[in-house]
Design a protein around this nucleic acid. Structure first.
Length: 424
RNA sequence: GGAGGAAUACCCAAGUCCGGCUGAAGGGAUCGGUCUUGAAAACCGACAGGGCAUGUAAGUGUCGCGGGGGUUCGAAUCCCUCUUCCUCCGCCA
C-alpha cells in the first residue's frame, strides 16, 4: 500500500510514475480530497468527544461527592449532537480510501524501463552455453511421455487439465531438485528453511497484494471466502511477521521456503497448454527477506545471485531481464526475471522472479521494526525471489539435457540425489 | 464433532459478580543509580506499547484490557458476535 501522506505531498509525481503501468491513476487526486474531508471530520469528532469525556468524568465526581449531577446531564445532551452522522460519514470515507489504496499497485522505480509488456523488458545479461543438438530436440512433454515419467492424461482424469502426475524418475527428479535447492540456500546461502501452511487466509492475501484485485486467480478452500490455497510461498512467508514489530538487530531476516503453489490461471486459457510449463499446482522454492530500507537493494542483488547460482550449478543457460513497467508485478517496485533457455521453444522462458516490494507489503501487512528501544517504528522492506520454480526446472533439464536416444543426462550435482546418471 | 474453561501491558498476575478517584494493583524481567576492588545481593528510581488527528517542536486530544459491534453521560467490568488457546470426550495420520 502506498503512503497517502507521501502522495499528498506530490500527487503528480505519483500519478506520473504509476501511469507508466499503462493505466490511469488520476483518481489519486480525488483520494486526497477525501482524505482532507476525513481529517477534518476526525478533528471535529475528537474535540466533541473530548468535551463529552470531561463532563462524564465530572458526573462521576459529583456522584462520589453526593452532589446532584442533573445539570450535567442537560449539558452533555447538547454536546453529543450530530456526531453520529459525522462518524458514519467518516467510516464511509475511510473504507473508500482504504479500498482505493489497496487497489493501487506499487510505484515503479524511476529507473524501471518503461514499456507495454514482456517484449519491452530490458535484458541485463546472458549466461551459459546454449546447447546444440545433432538431432531434432524434442519438447519436454514428448520426452517425458516417452520415458513414462510424466502422465498428463491421468493427471487430468484424477483432477482436471493442468494437473500432472509425476512418475518414477520424474517424481524423483522433482524431489531431488527441491532438496538440492533447499540445501543450497539453507546451507550455502544462509537462509533459514521454512515449510509454511499452504492454505492462507484473506488477511494474508491482502498483505502481499493478491487481494482484493486478483481474487479470481486464487482457489478458495471451502467456498466460504475465508481460506485460499497459496499461490506462492511468498504469501505465507511474508505473513510470518504480519502485525509484528521486529528488532532491528535481527535484520535482515532470510528465509527459504518450500511450498506448493496453486493458481487458477484464470487469464491464461489456451496458453502453454502442453507440458508442465503452466500448471494449477507446482512446487517452488522461494527466497524471502525482511530488510532495513537502506539495505534492500543490496539484498536484492544478493538474492538475484543466490537464485542464479541454482542455474549455474545445474549448468543451464539463462538470461536476466529487468522487468519493464508493463510487466512489473502489482506489489513490486523492481523485479528481475531469470529466464532459462528452452530448446523446444527456441527461446528463454521465465523460471524465477526476484523482486523488491520496498515497504508496500509491509504497510499492507503492518510489518515494522525498531532500530532500538527508543527509536520510532519503521516499515521493513520485503523481498522475494524464486529459488527456483521446480517444475520449470524439470522442464529445463529434460529439454537441455536430452540425448539423441531420448534419454536424459542427469546434471552432475543432482546425481547424488537421483542415484542414477541417466533417465532412460 | 460434543462438553466445559480462558484471553488484561515484555512475562506472570489482580480487578470483571455490584459500570465512574483503574489512562489499569502486585510481582518478575529490563534500564538507570547507590553500595562494592569487581560482581552478586540489597536498596532507590524509571518502565504500557501502538495507531490516528493537530503542531516546526515541546505538547495536546482521541482510540487502546484478544478482534468487531451494541447498551450507557460513562465499559476491562453489562449485552451480542467473531477469533485464538487450554481441559475432557469422540474421531483420526
Amino acid at each position: 500500500m502506498l503512503d497517502l501522506k507521501e502522495i499528498r505531498k506530490n500527487p503528480d509525481k505519483f500519478i506520473e510514475l504509476l501511469n507508466r503501468r499503462n493505466d490511469d491513476f488520476s483518481y489519486l487526486k480525488d483520494l486526497i480530497n477525501k482524505d482532507e474531508e476525513r481529517r477534518e471530520l476526525i478533528g471535529d469528532i475528537e474535540s466533541t468527544k473530548a468535551k463529552k469525556n470531561t463532563v462524564s468524568r465530572k458526573i462521576g465526581e459529583y456522584k462520589r461527592e453526593n452532589k446532584d449531577p442533573k445539570p450535567l446531564f442537560e449539558e452533555i445532551k447538547s454536546i453529543g449532537k450530530g456526531v453520529e452522522a459525522k462518524e458514519t460519514r467518516l467510516k464511509e470515507l475511510e473504507e473508500e480510501i482504504t479500498h482505493s489504496l489497496l487497489m493501487t499497485p506499487n510505484l515503479p522505480l524511476e529507473t524501471t524501463p518503461i514499456g507495454k509488456d514482456e517484449t519491452d523488458n530490458n535484458e541485463i545479461k546472458r549466461e551459459g552455453q546454449i546447447p546444440t543438438f545433432d538431432f531434432n530436440p524434442k519438447p519436454h512433454w514428448d520426452l517425458a511421455t516417452d520415458l513414462d515419467i510424466l502422465d498428463f492424461d491421468r493427471g487430468a482424469k484424477i483432477s482436471k487439465s493442468r494437473f500432472t502426475v509425476y512418475k518414477g524418475l520424474g517424481a524423483r527428479l522433482e524431489r531431488s531438485l527441491l532438496n538440492f535447492m533447499m540445501d543450497l540456500h539453507a546451507k550455502d546461502h544462509g537462509y533459514t528453511e521454512i515449510i509454511p501452511p499452504y492454505i492462507v487466509n484473506k488477511e494474508s492475501m491482502i498483505a502481499t497484494g493478491q487481494f482484493p484485485k486478483f481474487k479470481d486467480d486464487a482457489f478458495n478452500v471451502g467456498d466460504d471466502d475465508k481460506l485460499f490455497l497459496n499461490p506462492t510461498g511468498e504469501v505465507p512467508t511474508i505473513n510470518l511477521y504480519r502485525d509484528e514489530i521486529l528488532d532491528g538487530k535481527d535484520l535482515p531476516i532470510k528465509y527459504t521456503a518450500f511450498t506448493t503453489a496453486f493458481r487458477k490461471e484464470a487469464g491464461s486459457a489456451g496458453r502453454d497448454t502442453r507440458g508442465i510449463i503452466r500448471q494449477h499446482q507446482f512446487n517452488k522454492v522461494e527466497l524471502i527477506k525482511f530488510t532495513k530500507p537502506e539495505t534492500s537493494y543490496d539484498e536484492l542483488e544478493k538474492m538475484l545471485q543466490n537464485s542464479e547460482k541454482v542455474l549455474q550449478v545445474l549448468n543451464l543457460p539463462y538470461r536476466v531481464v529487468d522487468l519493464c513497467t508493463g510487466d512489473l508485478g502489482f506489489a513490486m517496485r523492481k523485479t528481475y526475471d531469470i529466464e532459462v533457455w528452452l530448446p523446444s521453444y527456441n527461446t528463454y522462458r521465465e523460471i524465477a522472479s526476484i523482486s523488491n516490494a520496498e515497504d508496500y507489503q509491509a504497510r499492507r501487512g503492518n510489518i515494522r521494526f525498531k532500530r532500538d528501544k527508543e527509536s520510532d517504528t519503521e516499515y521493513v522492506h520485503t523481498l522475494n525471489g524464486s529459488g527456483l520454480a521446480v517444475g520449470r526446472t524439470v522442464v529445463a533439464i529434460l529439454e537441455n539435457y536430452q540425448q539423441k536416444d531420448g534419454s536424459i543426462k542427469i546434471p552432475e550435482v543432482l546425481i547424488p540425489y537421483m542415484g542414477v546418471e541417466y533417465i532412460k
